[in-house]
């Protein structure tokens, strides 16, 4: 069984006429966190969506455990969690219901684990209110609870700290530290730097 690593080889991607990804290459092994920075439109989101195999690069490959992700897409998707700009939640459902339906599709979760996750992100008090009545920050915390529940080796996070207060941003840092401690990997696109508490972050700068 190949050791767990993510290899990205010479990714090229065009969005319309814009050459968005120009030969991006890097490797990530267990416990590492890569921070992708760059101005708006420099391709941070496109990179994450290409890594998650939602988008198809014109050139280059993404390898998981030494194997092209396209070889067994279901297995690769089973091993990753992708959080986009918007928390993937239904406004007409409560936080608890959203987690049950969103994470439940991927893995069986006991109610105790669900409660623990909601408690973890501080959503215990309002977890039964409809998500559309929650603030953007609260919705982001519910998404982070989902992340904590997923227990997958690879996290792809698109600006995870948006709409979060100081304490929320620290929660993100703790979750990332936790993920790395478990031997997992994180690729995160950020506007402003992650909290200083995260040590030895690897960095990838995307030019406009």
């Amino acid at each position: 069984m190949h050791d767990e690593r993510l290899d990205v080889e010479n990714l090229h991607l065009w969005r319309g006429d814009r050459h968005v990804l120009r030969g991006v290459s890097f490797s990530l092994s267990r416990g590492e966190c890569l921070q992708v920075t760059g101005p708006n439109g420099s391709g941070k989101t496109s990179l994450l969506r290409t890594l998650s195999a939602l988008m198809y690069p014109e050139e280059g490959r993404v390898l998981w455990r030494g194997q092209d992700v396209r070889a067994d897409l279901a297995a690769f998707h089973g091993a990753l969690a992708y959080l986009g700009h918007e928390p993937p939640l239904k406004g007409e459902l409560s936080a608890r219901e959203n987690l049950r339906y969103w994470i439940g599709v991927r893995r069986r979760i006991g109610s105790r684990a669900l409660e623990a996750a909601l408690e973890l992100v501080g959503a215990g008090a309002w977890c039964d209110r409809l998500v559309r009545t929650l603030s953007a920050g609260q919705r982001r915390r519910v998404a982070l609870a989902g992340l904590a529940l997923l227990m997958v080796p690879l996290w792809l996070l698109d600006e995870p700290t948006t709409n979060l207060d100081r304490e929320g941003q620290q929660l993100v840092a703790d979750l990332i530290a936790e993920q790395r401690a478990r031997g997992g990997m994180v690729v995160t696109a950020v506007h402003h730097e992650l909290p200083a508490s995260l040590r030895d972050l690897r960095r990838l700068e995307l030019r406009a």
């Binding site: 279901a74 690769f76 998707h77 700009h85 993937p88 599709v105």
Partner: peptide
């Protein structure tokens, strides 16, 4: 974004 999570669910 929930459809995206279905596509990425494995």
């Amino acid at each position: 974004g929930t459809l995206e999570q279905y596509a990425l669910s494995g």
